[in-house]
Nucleic acid binder design. Structure first.
Lengths: 340, 340
DNA sequence: CTGAAAGCGCTAACAC
DNA sequence: GTGTTAGCGCTTTCAG
């Protein structure tokens, strides 16, 4: 592959002139510029990015990490991120951290090694360890969870949705229909995301003066299969079944639906169901799934916008954006019985 | 950020020794290695990728380009690609070419500039222009269409699914139920993908001795919205409606379903419907959508495997893999009437 | 086993 | 307007 030196030599000029001609920065006679352009074309020249990066210290890449590649939610986020980043010429590096701390640390390491200029990170669990590494980092980072480390002085931005409020809203939705036995399928309680949503459930019940019963609660992993297994396990007991189930995300709700189908439990006739994420799928399942919209695309867009501002070097104060969840009621959560 | 020079200076040794110690290549006394490691740790050292790349000429990145980021089909492909690439430490750069030639050319240009070591490219339309650029390229490329350029001597691999056969299979499926009026919603006929699938439809009809009527055919763009509009337009005419519709992909079929819903046309009672891609969604829509499985994940996996082999420098002969489509029959395409 | 030195391809300050 | 020169941070011969 030809370099600017080859072009310079061929034209009998200096490499720096070639560089100026090609980049358009710095003075250069129009005529020489034309000659350079033509020679570059003829010699099939293409600038070498690694050399450019080494010199300029920018990679024009953004790292986006997700805890589960299989979840379409992140795909929706990508749309938003890409919408914003593309016009700036940023490339997107996609990484699946598989909800594992070591992979998240690896992502952070990639940033340290300047694989990318910035990162948007989705994690179920921000903890001292990864937060600490993030704070050490020079590069701009945007998280999609609310997180304020005990120490304070955080170096990252975040955009977040009040999922706790979202789940509470679902509880209210059920309670307003006179439902009293509400079950819950969530994520791991040790994880931030899992705890937040669970607390929404718990507080929602309390607010509605409903009782919380362990046999109606399952801890799962946000996957379709996890929701399916949680469903089977719930139906397995000899205890009184709940009248309604809240799944902490749509994927689990789909799995739960599958379990219902298998066990001949009709939704919404025998059991009401709601999820969270409002995947585009949810308006097409049968029955159509009630879900809390988290505005995936909007999260992506907002996160990307914050990141771009930050990467453009405006050493802005750390900003955080809160987005509001919105309950989208569909068939799966509406009781056909008359409300009392 | 500390460099190997800083470490060398601090330890009073040479940078090359530091480099050897860190990389593990070349001789290095165990003791010095330990000292280097510790100093690196203390000084918060991280190797600079651009410098490394400039020297080694490898980026450890693979570019994946899709014609429409909104289509979940590519998301499934990513799963497969990532499964294969991740163990090798390759990072994935995702790019949306928006089904535009100029963006495809931009992707090829990225490869020329060594943004990535190789590329997997999905395009609806390989033509002389982009194929020519691909053939000029030094870097390994895998396409997901069958393509043999007129000139021969192609430099890229491809993995492909016989979509033509897949569509024919759908026609047979309908014909075997005694259906005679079969309509079609496809992509642009000027594009490779659009033409292939259309020909499957055309030949399938011929094979079954059914007539092809222009008023039952719509040219669309593989999006949900496109399918919706095609549906409306089909129902708009005063002509006799077809008994069954084949959509060239699932996304259009979903849109078509929406149009049916709106026009109070029941599927499958009033109209039979089938799509192609077999998105995971299709088993959950109402009615469940019959679809031709193209094995997205398998395509991704296969493409990635070919690419890795190629990138590992084994200057292997160009290989091509053909995958077989498989018709997955669900509710949307099965007539409730007795077959004659 | 270690060090000196060249060079990957580009940019940019500075000199002319 | 153009050329000279010195890096960016790393790897890798080649000497020692």
């Amino acid at each position: 592959m030809a370099t600017i030196y080859d072009i310079a030599e061929k034209l009998g000029i200096s490499p720096s002139t070639v560089s100026r001609a090609l980049s358009g920065r710095g003075y250069c006679k129009e005529e020489t510029r034309k000659r350079v352009m033509q020679a570059a074309e003829e010699m099939d020249y293409a600038p070498d990015q690694s050399a450019k990066m080494l010199k300029t210290r920018v990679s024009n890449k953004v790292l986006f990490t997700v805890p589960d590649m299989c979840n379409p939610f992140y795909f929706d986020m990508i749309q938003g991120i890409n919408d914003v980043l593309d016009p700036y010429g940023y490339l997107l590096i996609l990484m699946d951290t598989k909800n594992r701390l070591d992979e998240e640390k690896r992502a952070i390491q990639l940033l340290r090694e300047k694989y990318a200029d910035g990162m948007i990170m989705v994690s179920f669990h921000f903890c001292e360890e990864n937060i600490d590494l993030l704070n050490r980092l020079q590069a701009p980072v945007v998280l999609t969870n609310k997180y304020i480390s005990p120490v304070g002085k955080d170096h990252f931005h975040y955009v977040w949705v009040d999922t706790q409020e979202g789940i509470k809203e679902v509880v209210r939705h059920f309670a307003s229909q006179g439902i009293r036995r509400i079950g819950y399928v969530g994520g791991r309680l040790q994880e931030q995301t899992g705890r937040e949503r669970y607390e929404g459930y718990r507080d929602g019940l309390q607010e509605a003066k409903l009782s919380l019963r362990a046999e109606w609660i399952r801890e799962s992993d946000y996957t379709e299969q996890g929701g399916y297994l949680a469903g089977l396990s719930l139906f397995d007991g000899s205890h009184l079944l709940p009248e309604a189930i809240i799944c902490a995300n749509d994927l689990m709700a789909y799995g739960f639906l599958r379990a219902c189908e298998e066990k001949q439990i009709r939704v919404p006739e025998d059991l009401l169901l709601a999820g969270m994420d409002n995947l585009s799928l949810s308006s097409r399942t049968y029955p159509k799934l009630t879900s809390v919209s988290l505005q995936a695309e909007e999260i992506g867009r907002t996160a990307a916008e914050m990141l771009v501002r930050r990467m453009n070097g405006y050493n802005q104060p750390i900003e955080n954006v809160k987005l509001l969840p919105e309950l989208v009621v569909r068939d799966s959560s509406v009781s056909h019985r008359l409300t009392p």
